[in-house]
Each structure stands twice: as structure tokens, then as C-alpha cells.
Write a protein that binds this DNA or RNA. Structure first.
Length: 1133
RNA sequence: AGUCCCAUAGCUCAGUUGGUUAGAGCGCUACACUGAUAAUGUAGAGGUCCCCAGUUCAACUCUGGGUGGGACUACCA
């Protein structure tokens, strides 16, 4: 006895999940799949590291399903797809989580808790949910190597980061500069952008803005502006929304190519004559009609001509270093608002700082009593009080008379609790002061959106802080160029969101003033004159040795570290985190001590460096690095565009002049079923563990990937998962069960010699053709990283074609009799479909497909592999695709559905045979096609014969429809008219038109010739018949039920009833019976005539008729035939 | 504020290079089938293709401008 195909009681997907997982474990399937076949080589995939300090959510299932699908597909294609898991372990979320659980704030670190203890807590906390993550990974079927993950806090990982930073340093891409960071004077702390993006942080506030007037200095450079002016002074105007920064002004910026006008007008406050420069384009805005100011343009100039002109300091409180108060040019200057001239205060603006640096304009700094230089506003948000300033500095640089009244004032009233509401702001007072001096043109209140501190609810100040930057702007063009070679899914994220981001790139601020993260490997002398960037532990060890020699350190923490030994033990001899690195003091070339810059680096650098750091490059994997870089494929949520996607791209461009990834899918968000963001707080978050536990991973994956394109947001609705389960999984499983049931009965094993396809019946060749078409499409879609259409195509094939048409129409072929060639052909065809579908769908739904594959293969032994995931992805056979065959079957499906609809319309059930259908045929081709599927249709709709009607019969009503696509370009504006004329043709005209193949249309007295190729002629109706038409197809049904047909119908009814009775009575399918039917006039004749037929169908030895009185046995049943109750007795022999 | 995405039936989604009856599934209603049966089929109802303007003989489709939802980024004076 040969092996049987397993049959199951029902579809239990969670059980399939667990069984298959066990099978994978037992067979070590994942590890064995990691190999290259047919010399295909590597397909490089990068895993974006999640942070294990939070529980995984359902959205993680989404991106991981995408990643897994592609990786499994490529594996099946023969590539070796290594997948190293990774953990992102640094960063603010981790720190905030620890602070919360320890009940401390940032200020407590270093006092209530040591940095060492704090970081130890972070290190522990960050891997808190590792188990949950691994559990989810396993149960959702995400194949990734979790045994050897990369961990960003690992010393080896950090060593690579240091190496990268040093490479950037050597290329002069790493520099220290100001960054204008959100800073909360009220809280005394800087704010991260993530804190700034908390809801409610941005609020509309009303601030005082002013247009200030700067006096130009008359000298050789500016003479051309003065020589023909009738005023002694020529001024230049600049707009600001932050008048409190005006005392820190040291430059004015104009656009190089912007046109400026010199205008003669009057000062609106003093009425004095005024000659002033501003952008020509903005004249109508500044001198808007309602302002009632007269003006005359007395000259126009390009921005470049104004360059380097000197001007007087606007507010003479503090004297800056030499080189200030010049007009410079800047590419950031626009004429969208303001005056086309930008006030530059390098201490309070990023653009300002850069412009100042570029043109050698110094920032306005003050010398504090502690010897450090600082901006004119202190960290509490005050104009620096006089008592905080260095005395000598005050004596030489500060105008105490003018500055005195303003010193110590807060730049925003909100910072000063003592001020009454509505008190004048510093902005207002400065503006008023300028007004009195005739140095302001306009003062206005303006409402704008401004960020507030989430802790104190007070305005944030943008404040200059020392920071380290990566000069990403230097590589901007190259990044754009390289980005254009990346295959983005969807394309718009690459060209749009990401492309635009690159175009507007600013330098990457790397510094973070935190504790738990990768330390910046830069040591500096106190006067910041000497510095060193460390790029490896070996280098650090040498430097420490030198420091010990110089007497700055007592012992070397790296004393036992062995260079070149990459073992975990060797690297666990030390800790590169704070506070340990901070205890290392190095010695400068001139023998002075150097301390580490206290900053950490942005965690995004950690993750963006993973292509290098996961390999501990270049300390390891130096020779084979080209096999792991760049990635062929990555996938993450679209929210990573400016995060991981960018940092990967930036680092790869800067270090390797290469893309980091060649293909990318960025998926959208996962929302709840109402379209709201999922959040634990709202309680609408879906727990992936519960869902997978209850429904299995396959339906969840399938639903996520086929319901909508992955880059659209998905509204996750559980009923969608259930629908998919019923519709696709249920059908696929049923099809398998059907196959297994009969194959086992017939002893079909799949080992039989294949019936050549050309000898198989039309319908087998049809489904094989469709199957090959499917293979082609699915392969193309997967190759294009277009998962959704691939899945949908598989689903359509299984539910529509395989189950609903092929299996349904062929059921009879599997019943009874021996295993003849036709039956064998049917089994083999169905087997091939099931097996192929399991392979095609395996990347998407790895569990059920492996179950089906293994179950099939266990009997047939057709494959040597013990898992579908080890089997090569099949390629389609072009020779087996027969478009005409597919088209014919489509006609059959449509016609059948139309006839069934007609039957429904007149309420004649399908069991009642009907005599004939009529099909209009106006060309031989259609008739040939129809003829090929005739018997299928007739069987499906239970009709005896088909009659072809051509137009010579005169029975058809024809209709001409214009082909707009062809005629439109010809007729142009007359198309509407022409269309109407064509539709208006009479039956005679149509007949003639068709005979001649051409015809003249007369429009507006003009004749146009049209041919039958330019229209579509269909037979729409056959008068007197029941007709249906759809598109080009028309069919008529003869609904006359003759006595003969009626009898046959009745016979079929009896077959049906007797079968039901057999089943109800619990007879075996093979039991023989005797049947007695009540002799009633309405049925007796039919029963007599078709007794043999009924007997054959129901395995009855004989069918007899008897009067009602003879039917008294308790086994007698009553049944309704043709609205009449009939008694039937079925007895087992 | 900027950039990008989305908007088609009650719900979830298709809709090829613009072409004249805008589709599917679910749900609802009715019917049928019943040797795949805790399956299946057929039909019906259900649409201002978000709004406005433009291009065109022709717009769900292309262009512009809005509206609504979402994401990211954000001191450009």
C-alpha cells in the first residue's frame, strides 16, 4: 500500500504554524537555505535594527513581512541571502525610559545617580524585550539570523563607528561649529527635535517685527550710491521677526543676482527724507498702496554690486571683533518676504553663522567674567547682565550708557515671572528705541507659529551651542546622483520625499549632550587649539601609553587589549561608553593634556553605519567586504526616509562613494480600522502576538501585503484577516483536500509517468496555460519588488480559475472508474497546480505553503528538498501558454454566467434541462472558438444544444458602436455628431454597411467614409427570445420546457432526492439500494422513462412505482418534486 | 510653514498609454446548488469617481487651484 496524501479535518492555521515551525527546527531549514545555488552568489540584505526597549507592534509585522518575502524569494531564486539581525541600543528613547523607571530626571544624572550606574541601567533596559522580539520574529515566520546579531553598544561596533568618524575627519568632513538648537531657558536645557514634535508644542504667537534701517558708510565702495543722492545718508532696510537679535547683528546679506532699487521716500515716523535700498521686486509690498507712502526709484543695482559695502552698527551696545558690519551675499536670500536683505546675527542663526564664517564676518560675542566667550544673550534668556561680564571687556568694548538699561532683561517676557501680563517686551522696547533714532521703517505685530517647551510651556529659544557636524552638504550633489540610481518603491518616495530632502540638505549635526550612546572620539586641549581623532582601539592604546609617559594617566585601561584579536573576550576588557572614555586623558603633540569632547553622537549614525559596523569593518571582513556591500535590498517604514534611509545613504556616499542599497521598499503606516494611528494609550493598538496566535501568521501576512500596496497606509481590520482566511486560505485548503480525498481513493501518487500535455483535454491545457501565465506574472512582479500584485494574481488564480472553474467543472472526472488516462491527466494537472502555487506563494505565506508542499511531496517524491523554501523557484514554459485557449475559456465562463443569469430571470433551475441556446455568429472565427468550448458550456448550464444564428436569418437586431479611439482623432470636434449618426443607423443600413465594408457618413453636408474596422457591430437582440448580452457577447436561451425535458428534469430531481436520502440514512457511498416511488400522475411517466438513469446514478438495483398505500414503512420520506409532495422509500440491499 | 502620500459603492481595494454601461471582494436582499458541504454559485440594490477651473472631439485618468486625512521636516530674515 502506497503512502497517502494527508487529509485534515479542518483548516487550523495556528496548528499549521506550529507544526511547520517545528519541522523547520528539526530540519534546520533556515540555515540550510543559506547557500548559493547555480552560482547565483549573494543577494545582500540589510536589517534595520529595531530598538528592543519597546514591545514589538503589529506594524513591525508589516515591514518584516515585506523583508521576509523578498529574501525568501531571492533564496528560492538561488541566491545566498544572509540576514543578520541587529539591535539599536542607544539613544534618547532608551534614556527617557530609564529615567522614567528610575524616577529621575536628566539633571539628576551625575548627582543622584552616577553616569556609570545610569549607563548600566540603560544597557540592561535596552534589551528588556529581546525575548518578545525573538518570539514574534519566530512566530511570524521572519527568517533572520538572531543568533549572531549586531548590537550597536558592542565595543567592536563602536570601534567601526570611530573608524568611520576618523575617515570623515581625515576628509575634513567632520568639524566643530555652532548649531542653533532649540533651547528652553526656562528649563535650562536643550530640546531634541523629538521633544519639539510633541503635540501642542507649536503654537501661534504674536510677535513684534520690524524693518530696521542701517546707515551705509560713504567710502570708495559705496560712492556710487551717494554721489547723485539728495540726502546725506543712504540706508539699507532689513526685516526681522526677532528684534532682540538686532544688537547682535554683524552683517547684512543680499542675494547675488537679486535686483535692488535705491528709493527716495520719507521716513514714515519722522517724516524725514529717506534714501533707502531694498529689493526691487518687493517695492509694491513695502510701499503698498494703503501705506500712502510716495517713493521714487533713483537707481537699480544687482546684489553683487552691493557686496562688501560697509555700514554703521545699528545698536552700539557691544563692539565686535574687526570685520563686522559689511554687506555680504548669501544663496539663502529670497524675495518671498521681508525686504530682500537679511539681517545677520551669527550667534542666533544657522544661515547667519555660515554666512558670517564664509565672509569672515565675526559673530558678536562677549567675554564673560569666567573667561569664556558667549553670545549677548545668556542661557537663562537674558541680555547678559553687566556683572557677569569681564571688567576689562566692559571697559574696552561695552557702551554701558546705552546697554545699561537693557542689560539683564529677558528676551521673552515669559521667562520673567515678575513681569505683569501685557508688559512691553524687549522686542518692543528695542523697536521703540530705534524709532526714536530714526532707524526703523516699520514696526508690526505678526502672528506666526513658534515652538514651546513641553515641560514649561514657555517659548523655546534658538540658541547657539557648540556642536560637531558632518559636512554632508559637501557631498550633496553626489548623494543626489547616487540616489537617482536607486530603485525606490514607491518611486515617489525616492524622487520626492527623499530627493527633495537631499536637495535641501544641511550639515548633519552629530552632537548629542547625553550619556548613553557612542562617544565622540575626539580629544582636545582646553584652549581648543590641538585635537586628535581616534579611529581604533589600537590607536587609543598607543595614545594612552604616551599619556602615561607624559604623566597624565596612571595606568592603561587597554593594557591587556590585544590588537588584531577580534574575540568578544578581548573586546570586553574595556567599555567605550561614558564615563570610562571620559577618564582617558591624552597628550597633545606639544605635551599638553587633552580631554574628550563630552558629546555623544547622534544614534542615527549608529544605525546608518551598520553596513560597516555589523561586519566590524575594516578590522574584520576587509577582503570580502564587497560581498556584503552595498545592499541589494532594504525595506522599512516610510518614516525612516530622513532617518535610516538617509544615514545609510550619506555614510556610504562619504565613505565608499557608493549607494548603500540598490532597491528599497518603504511601506506606509499601519492604522486602526478607522484610520487612526494606533497607540497604546488609545487602546486601539493591535497585539501581534494575539493575532498570530489566533489566526496564524500566514493570513496576517497575506492580508497586509495584498490588501493594499505596502506604501499606502493600511487600515488594519481584523475582519479583513478573517475574510482572507475564508476566501483564499479556505479555498486553497479545500482544493488540496479535494485532491487528497480522491487521489487517495484512486491510489494516485504523483509518481505516475506524466501524460504529455498535448494529450490532455482542453480544460487541463487551459489551467496549465493560466498557471504558466501566473508563473510569468508572479516572477516579474517579485523581480520588480511589487509584492501586492503578485499575491493578488495568485489569489485570483486559486479562487477564480482553479477552484471555481477548473475543479468545479471537472469534479466528475475524479469520480468512479479506474485510473485511465483522462483521470490521470486530471490528477496530474491538479497536482501540478497545487504544487506550483505552493512554491509561488511560499515567499508570502511560508507556513501553509510548506505544509502543502511537504504533504504532496511526501507521496510523490518529485522533489529531493524537504521544504518548499529550499526548492528552486520555477520558471514558466512559454510553450504551455496558449492565449487563444485562455480567451476561449473566458468566452465559456462569460456565456455560462450569462445563461445562468437568464435561467435565474425566469426561475428555471439548473437541474431542469433546456433544449437549446442560440448564439449569433457573424464571423467564422468566433464560431470556431465557441465550438471548442461548446460542450463545457452546455454541461455547465444544462442545455442540450447550441444553434448558431447568422445575420442571413434576419432574426438578429444589430447595433453599431463607434470605436472612439480610432474615430476620435479623425473626426475631432465632429466626433459627437459622427457618433450619433453611427448609432442612428437602421438595420438595413447596418446590413449594407457590413456587406460593403464601408459607408459614407454625411455631416454638415460633408461626406466621410468609414469602414467596418472603425466600428464594432454586435448582435444585441433576438426578438422573441430571452437574450443577454455583455460586451461583444450575446446569447439567447430557449426556455420552452417540453414534456420530454420536463421528464428528464424530474428524473434529475429524483436523483438528487435519493442521494440526499442515502446520505441522511448514513449509507456508504458504495452501498446498493432499492427504491420505491409513490405512483403519482405528475411523476410516474418520468420515472418510468428514466428508471435506468436514476438507478445508475444512485446505485439502485431497481426503481419501482407503488401506490401510496403500499408505502407505509417508517423509512418512507416525503419530498417536494415540482410542487408536489412525493413519497419515496430507499432501502439498503 | 515646507515637502511628499492618499481620496472611486456602506467597508477594503482594482481601474493599463485619456475612448463612452467605472469593476472585485466583504456586507445587505433574493434565489440556486449540494458526491469539495462549518464549502459554493447566480442575481439585485448600492457611485456627483472629494470640490472648482483648465486642456481635449472625449477626463475617474492629464494640468492648475482648493478641501479633507496622513507622514516627514522645520529658527530661512
Amino acid at each position: 500500500m502506497s503512502k497517502k496524501f494527508p487529509e485534515y479535518k479542518g483548516l487550523d492555521l495556528p496548528k499549521v504554524n506550529n507544526d511547520v515551525l517545528k519541522m523547520w527546527d528539526d530540519n534546520d531549514t533556515f540555515r540550510r537555505s543559506l547557500r548559493s545555488r547555480d552560482g547565483k552568489g549573494e543577494f545582500v540584505f540589510y536589517e534595520g535594527p529595531p530598538s528592543a526597549n519597546g514591545m514589538p507592534g503589529i506594524h513591525h509585522v508589516m515591514s518584516r513581512a515585506i523583508k521576509d518575502t523578498i529574501c525568501r524569494y531571492k533564496t528560492q531564486q538561488g541566491y545566498e541571502v544572509k540576514r543578520k539581525a541587529g539591535w539599536d541600543t542607544h539613544g534618547l528613547p532608551v534614556e527617557l525610559g530609564v529615567e522614567k523607571s528610575l524616577g529621575i530626571t536628566r539633571e539628576d544624572i551625575g548627582s543622584k545617580i552616577s553616569v556609570e550606574e545610569y549607563n548600566a541601567a540603560c544597557r540592561k533596559d535596552v534589551m528588556k524585550f529581546t525575548d518578545a522580539w525573538e518570539d514574534l520574529t519566530r512566530h511570524m515566520g521572519y527568517w533572520i539570523d538572531m543568533d549572531n546579531p549586531y548590537i550597536t553598544y558592542d565595543n567592536r561596533y563602536i570601534e567601526t563607528l570611530w573608524w568611520l568618524l576618523k575617515e570623515l575627519y581625515k576628509k575634513d568632513l567632520l568639524y566643530e561649529g555652532y548649531t542653533i538648537q532649540p533651547f528652553s531657558p526656562a528649563a535650562g536645557t536643550g530640546l531634541s527635535s523629538h521633544e519639539l514634535n510633541m503635540p501642542g508644542c507649536y503654537k501661534d504667537v504674536k510677535d513684534t517685527t520690524c524693518i530696521a534701517l542701517f546707515n551705509l558708510i560713504r567710502n570708495g565702495k559705496s560712492e556710487f550710491l551717494f554721489s547723485d543722492s539728495d540726502t546725506a545718508e543712504v540706508k539699507i532696510m532689513a526685516w526681522t521677526t526677532t528684534p532682540w537679535t538686532l544688537p547682535s547683528n554683524t552683517a547684512l546679506a543680499v542675494g547675488h543676482d537679486i535686483k535692488y532699487a535705491r528709493v527716495r521716500t520719507t521716513n514714515p515716523y519722522s517724516g524725514d527724507p529717506l534714501t533707502v535700498i531694498l529689493a526691487e521686486e518687493l517695492l509694491p509690498v513695502i510701499f503698498a498702496p494703503d501705506k500712502k507712502l510716495e517713493y521714487t526709484v533713483t537707481g537699480t543695482y544687482r546684489g553683487s554690486e552691493l557686496k562688501d559695502i560697509d555700514y554703521e552698527q545699528l545698536i552700539d551696545w557691544v563692539k565686535p571683533d574687526d570685520g563686522a558690519f559689511r554687506v555680504v551675499t548669501g544663496d539663502f536670500v529670497t524675495t518671498v518676504d521681508g525686504t530682500g536683505i537679511v539681517h545677520i546675527a551669527p550667534t542666533f542663526g544657522a544661515d547667519d553663522y555660515r554666512a558670517g564664517r564664509e565672509h569672515g564676518v565675526p559673530p558678536l560675542l562677549v567675554l564673560m567674567s569666567d573667561g569664556f566667550q558667549a553670545p549677548l544673550v545668556d542661557r537663562r534668556g537674558r541680555m547678559v547682565p553687566l556683572e557677569d561680564l569681564d571688567q576689562a571687556f566692559i571697559a574696552t568694548r561695552v557702551n554701558t550708557e546705552t546697554y545699561g538699561p537693557f542689560a539683564g532683561r529677558y528676551v521673552k517676557n515669559e521667562y520673567d515671572e515678575s513681569l505683569p501680563e501685557g508688559a512691553d517686551t524687549l522686542d518692543v522696547d528695542i523697536a521703540v528705541m530705534l524709532k526714536q533714532q530714526g532707524r526703523v521703517f516699520r514696526i508690526e505685530k505678526q502672528v506666526h507659529n513658534y515652538p514651546h517647551c513641553w515641560r514649561t510651556d514657555k517659548p523655546v529659544l534658538y540658541y547657539p551651542l557648540d556642536s560637531w557636524f558632518i559636512r554632508t552638504t559637501a557631498l550633496r550633489d553626489r548623494m543626489i546622483e547616487l540616489n537617482n540610481t536607486i530603485n525606490w518603491k514607491p518611486e515617489s518616495t525616492g524622487t520626492g520625499r527623499f530627493g527633495k530632502w537631499l536637495e535641501n540638505l544641511v550639515d548633519w549635526n552629530l552632537s548629542r549632550s547625553r550619556y548613553w550612546g557612542t562617544p565622540l572620539p575626539i580629544w582636545m586641549t582646553d584652549d581648543r587649539q590641538e585635537e586628535i581623532c581616534i579611529g581604533s582601539l589600537a590607536e587609543l592604546k598607543i595614545e594612552i601609553t604616551r599619556s602615561i609617559d607624559a604623566g597624565y594617566m596612571m595606568h592603561n585601561p587597554l593594557a591587556n587589549f590585544v590588537e588584531g584579536d577580534n574575540s568578544a573576550e578581548n573586546y570586553s576588557l574595556l567599555d567605550l561608553h561614558r564615563p570610562f572614555v571620559d577618564e582617558i586623558i591624552l597628550v597633545s603633540p606639544t605635551g599638553r593634556p587633552m580631554r574628550r569632547e563630552p558629546d555623544l553622537i547622534d544614534v542615527w549614525f549608529d544605525s546608518g553605519a551598520m553596513p560597516y559596523a555589523q561586519a566590524h569593518y575594516p578590522f574584520e571582513n576587509k577582503e570580502n567586504f564587497s560581498e556584503m556591500f552595498p545592499a541589494d535590498f532594504i525595506a522599512e517604514g516610510v518614516d525612516q526616509t530622513r532617518g535610516w534611509f538617509f544615514t545609510l545613504h550619506a555614510i556610504a556616499t562619504m565613505i565608499s562613494d557608493s549607494v548603500s542599497f540598490k532597491n528599497i521598499i518603504s511601506n506606509g503606516l499601519l492604522l486602526d480600522k478607522n484610520g487612526n494611528k494606533m497607540s497604546k494609550r488609545l487602546g486601539n493598538a493591535v497585539d501581534p502576538f494575539i493575532i498570530i496566535d489566533q489566526h496564524g501568521a500566514d493570513p496576517v501576512r497575506w492580508y497586509m501585503l495584498t490588501n493594499a500596496q505596502p506604501w499606502d497606509n493600511l487600515r488594519f481590520d481584523l475582519s479583513g484577516v478573517e475574510e482572507v482566511k475564508r476566501k483564499f486560505f479556505g479555498t486553497l485548503y479545500n482544493t488540496y483536500s479535494f485532491f487528497a480525498l480522491y487521489a487517495n481513493v484512486d491510489g494516485f501518487t504523483g509518481k505516475e509517468p506524466q501524460v504529455p500535455v498535448e494529450r490532455r483535454p482542453e480544460i487541463d491545457r487551459w489551467i496549465i496555460s493560466l498557471l504558466n501565465t501566473l508563473m510569468k506574472e508572479v516572477t516579474e512582479r517579485y523581480d520588480d519588488y511589487d509584492i501586492t500584485p503578485a499575491g493578488r494574481a495568485i489569489s485570483d488564480f486559486v479562487t477564480e480559475n482553479l477552484s471555481n472553474w477548473y475543479v468545479r467543472l471537472n469534479r466528475k472526472r475524479y469520480w468512479g472508474g479506474g485510473l485511465d488516462e483522462d483521470k490521470l491527466s486530471a490528477y496530474q494537472t491538479l497536482y501540478t497546480c497545487l504544487e506550483t502555487v505552493s512554491i509561488l506563494a511560499a515567499p508570502l505565506i511560508p507556513f501553509l505553503t510548506d505544509r502543502i508542499f511537504v504533504d504532496l511531496n511526501a507521496v510523490s517524491g518529485r522533489h529531493s528538498e524537504d521544504s518548499v523554501h529550499l526548492v528552486a523557484f520555477p520558471s514558466y514554459d512559454k510553450k504551455l501558454i496558449d492565449r487563444h485557449l485562455e480567451e476561449r475559456m473566458e468566452i465559456a465562463q462569460k456565456i455560462s454566467s450569462m445563461i445562468l443569469a437568464l435561467r435565474r430571470r425566469v426561475n428555471i433551475r439548473v437541474r431542469q434541462p433546456l433544449a437549446k441556446i442560440m448564439v449569433p455568429v457573424t464571423n467564422g472565427q468566433f464560431k470556431k472558438k465557441f465550438e471548442a468550448v461548446r460542450s463545457l458550456i452546455l454541461a455547465e448550464v444544462n442545455v442540450r444544444e447550441v444553434e448558431y444564428v447568422d445575420d442571413t436569418s434576419g432574426m438578429l437586431i444589430r447595433k453599431v458602436k463607434p470605436n472612439f479611439k480610432l474615430l476620435g482623432p479623425r473626426f475631432g470636434k465632429k466626433m459627437k455628431e459622427a457618433g450619433a449618426a453611427i448609432l442612428a443607423m437602421t438595420q438595413e443600413e447596418i446590413a449594407e454597411f457590413e456587406k460593403l465594408g464601408a459607408r459614407n457618413l454625411t455631416l454638415d453636408g460633408e461626406a466621410y467614409a468609414i469602414t467596418t474596422d472603425e466600428v464594432e457591430i454586435i448582435s444585441e437582440d433576438i426578438p422573441g427570445w430571452l437574450v443577454a448580452n455583455e460586451g461583444k457577447l450575446t446569447v439567447a436561451l430557449d426556455i420552452t420546457v417540453t414534456e420530454e425535458l420536463l421528464h428528464e428534469g424530474i428524473a434529475r430531481e429524483f436523483v438528487n432526492r435519493i442521494q440526499n436520502i442515502r446520505k441522511d440514512s448514513g449509507f456508504e457511498v458504495t452501498d446498493k439500494i432499492r427504491v420505491v416511488i409513490e405512483e403519482l400522475p405528475s411523476v410516474a411517466a418520468a420515472v418510468r422513462k428514466h428508471a435506468d438513469y436514476i438507478a445508475a446514478q444512485t446505485l439502485a438495483l431497481d426503481i419501482s412505482l407503488a401506490p401510496s398505500s403500499a408505502l407505509t414503512s417508517p423509512a418512507v420520506r416525503e419530498t417536494d418534486i415540482e410542487d408536489q409532495m412525493v413519497r419515496v422509500l430507499v432501502m439498503k440491499v
